[in-house]
Amino acid sequence: MAFIQFENVKKIYRSGEVSVEALRDVSFQVERGEICVIVGPSGAGKTTLLNILGGMDTLTEGRIRLDGEDISAYSKKRLITYRRRDVGFVFQFYNLIENLTVLENVELAAQICPDPLDAADTLRAVGLGHRLDNFPSQLSGGEQQRVAIARALAKNPKLLLCDEPTGALDYNTGKQILKLLEDTSRGSGMTVLIITHNSALTAMADRVITVNSGSVRSVSLNPDPTPISQIEW
């Protein structure tokens, strides 16, 4: 049984007369501990896919299983619990709480989890041990993203979902972030899904899912992923 399983997932947005098929009959699998990169052009449906997987949105048809559980049948409340416990999200624009320090930001997420990791330790693990009492506005973009990752990690989730994590970062910083993600996955066996439109990054992935116009064009396994430090673009 695959860790993540998408079965014939359809997502249709309806507003009045207009209906948009964001996902058409998407099916794929992801194994535990994999780094899975989802590529595709803008508007392909990548974010939608991730959102549904992350419990932020619901599908119209089909089924999604995570670690054997059918999350597509979850009620709204159950979805929230699912998000709480099982999912860690990393956004393109970090979305840190400006009013809380770095440490508090991570604590905020850790507080609501049943089995969190220590916030300060997680921050140190991402290399921000010296910035614990600073506010996000006092951090650079990369540092902020690292905080976001720490926040997601502290929750001790089953999987990490990253939506264009390097989109707002420069080349070098982006690479650092990706390294962090790579280390997390390789180091702790975390399943990481990364959405990007940069096809160069597919080299680091164990599995590459190509999405175009709402459908999965291809799912390819990469038996020998390249460490990010070796990838140039």
Binding site: I80, R83, R85, I112
Partner: peptide, 11 residues
């Protein structure tokens, strides 16, 4: 901010 908090899993 509110959306983030929701995403984090706040009921």
């Amino acid at each position: 901010e509110i959306a983030t908090v929701k995403v984090l899993g706040f009921y």
